[in-house]
Amino acid sequence: MYVPPGWPAEVRPPGSPDWKVSAVSWLLDAVPPDYRAYGVLRRHPLALARMARQQVAASIQAAREGYRGAAVDLKEHLPPHAIEAVLDAYRQEGPRLVRLAESVALVERALRGEHFLPRL
C-alpha cells in the first residue's frame, strides 16, 4: 500500500489491519499526555487527529515566538554561549515540529477517507 512522503513510520498504511489503532497510538504521542484521559479521542481518531493538528500548530507558533524573544529575554540571565545553545534548540525544534505537523495532516486526511496515489 502506498503512503506519501512524510507518512509517519509508526503508523501502518491506511486500510491495513489495525492501521487506525497505530494512528491513535502515534497521535497520542504527538499531544500532551493529558489527552490520553479522554476516551472519546480513542473512539474517534479523526477528532484526535484534528486536536493533534491544532496542538502541533500552536507548538510551532510558540517555538517561533520563543525563538524571536529568547536572546532579549535571557541576555541578563544567561551567558552568551548558553543563549546560543537555546537558540540552536529552537532551530532544531522548529523544523521537527513542522515535519510533525505535515505527518499529522497526512494521517488526518487518511482518517477522512482520502486515498493516496503515487505520483509519476
Rank of each mutant, 00 (worst) to 15 (best):
M1W: 10
V3R: 11
V3F: 07
V3P: 03
P4E: 10
W7D: 02
W7N: 02
W7R: 03
P8T: 00
P8H: 00
V11G: 04
V11W: 01
V11Q: 01
G15A: 12
S16E: 15
S16M: 08
W19C: 04
S22T: 13
V24M: 09
S25R: 14
V31L: 12
P32K: 14
D34C: 13
Y35S: 07
R36F: 11
A37I: 05
G39F: 05
G39K: 10
V40M: 01
L41G: 08
R42M: 12
R43V: 05
R43A: 15
L48C: 11
A49D: 02
A49C: 05
R50T: 15
M51Q: 13
R53H: 13
Q54S: 13
Q55L: 08
V56C: 09
A57F: 01
A58T: 07
S59Q: 14
I60T: 06
Q61D: 10
Q61A: 13
Q61H: 09
A63H: 00
E65G: 14
G66M: 02
R68L: 12
G69Y: 15
G69V: 10
G69W: 14
A71H: 02
A71M: 05
A71W: 06
D73C: 06
L74W: 01
K75D: 01
K75V: 08
H77V: 14
L78E: 03
L78Y: 03
P79E: 14
A82T: 08
A85T: 11
A85F: 12
V86L: 10
V86N: 01
L87M: 10
D88C: 00
P95W: 12
P95I: 12
L97N: 01
L97S: 02
V98I: 15
V98D: 08
A101L: 12
S103K: 04
S103Y: 04
S103I: 05
V104I: 15
A105D: 13
L106W: 05
L106H: 04
V107E: 03
V107F: 04
V107P: 00
E108H: 03
E108L: 02
A110F: 03
L111V: 08
R112N: 00
R112I: 02
R112M: 09
G113H: 08
G113I: 11
H115I: 10
L117D: 00
L117Q: 08
L120G: 15
L120K: 14
L120H: 15
